[in-house]
Write a protein that binds this DNA or RNA. Structure first.
Length: 270
DNA sequence: AAAGACACCTGTCCGC
DNA sequence: TGCGGACAGGTGTCTT
């Protein structure tokens, strides 16, 4: 479910409800997520959330005594609900506030995570080595070009590597490479600076428009919502195997790259 | 040091 | 209708 746009949408969606709000209790029904939820998460109780931030696909909820790190994995979702709302399957964690609202975490596949750190969260092992945020000015064609000079790995895997740049998941890697006209199998080290400029432009455009489309989800944040907004935006290649390329009418191909489905037009993308 | 495979888990869809 | 198998939006960790 969550690519960067949904994580961003979730973050913006929960912030107005939980920021400056005091945690009453944390209820853990299923501690076995990707990692065991640590007992130290209880330190969050009776603390006020001072900040809600996103770093990559991690959501950071900071209090005076420490920071909760939350990751949605493949299938996680967050909902702001009344504290007494009936449970659904896979509702693993509730963070209850004194004003009787509840931040509820649901995650069927349990690839998500909820961790606690009392130090500087950016020093946490999971955050420390993360690459640039894709929607910053630092993330440029020149940056990717510099970092890729020695690299023989496929460009799609290179831009999906979180130590290079965070937040580019399988859907948007496919889409951005299509928009930039780059073959996903091409070695990262053999791509020109100009092509990287186009790729970075495409990445920013596709993520930004998806986040804007996610506004639909944002508006519905309190109610049970359907598919995230970005899913409704028209994807050009992802999931389009066998269909005609929107640019040239050649057939969209499907291959596996790093065990992930990779869709592209072999005519447009060289 | 870097690249590739594997692991974690449930739900859904497709072909027989 | 049922069943087996492949696959799904992520990413840390282990093995080469």
């Amino acid at each position: 479910m969550p690519e960067l746009p949904e994580v961003e949408t979730s973050c913006l969606g929960i912030e107005p409800f939980i920021k400056n709000n005091k945690v009453k209790k944390i209820i853990i029904r299923q501690p076995k997520l990707r990692w065991l939820i640590p007992a130290t998460i209880k330190a969050m109780e009776n603390q006020t959330i001072q900040q809600v931030k996103r770093r990559g696909k991690y959501i950071l909820m900071t209090t005076k005594s420490g920071t909760a790190l939350l990751h949605l994995g493949m299938s996680g979702s967050l909902h702001i609900i009344p504290a007494d709302k009936p449970l659904k399957k896979h509702d693993h964690v509730d963070i209850l506030f004194y004003n009787d609202i509840c931040l509820r975490f649901n995650d069927p596949r349990r690839f998500g995570a909820l961790l606690w750190t009392d130090g500087n969260p950016y020093d946490h092992a999971l955050l420390q080595k993360l690459g640039l945020e894709p929607l910053t000015d630092d993330f440029s064609g020149n940056y990717l070009w510099q970092r890729s000079r020695q690299s023989k790995r496929a460009i799609k895997l290179f831009i999906m590597a979180s130590h290079v740049v965070v937040g580019i998941g399988n859907i948007y890697a496919n889409e951005a490479l299509f928009h930039a006209g780059i073959n996903p199998k091409k070695a990262a080290g053999k791509i020109s600076k100009m092509a990287y400029d186009q790729l970075v432009y495409a990445i920013k455009a596709v993520l930004t428009s998806a986040i804007e489309a996610g506004g639909t989800t944002l508006r519905d944040f309190q109610s049970a919502h359907g598919k995230p907004g970005y899913f409704q935006q028209d994807l050009k290649v992802y999931g389009k195997k066998g269909q005609a390329c929107v640019k040239c009418q050649h057939t969209i191909k499907l291959i596996r790259l790093g065990q992930r489905s990779t869709f592209y037009c072999s005519y447009c993308q060289n």
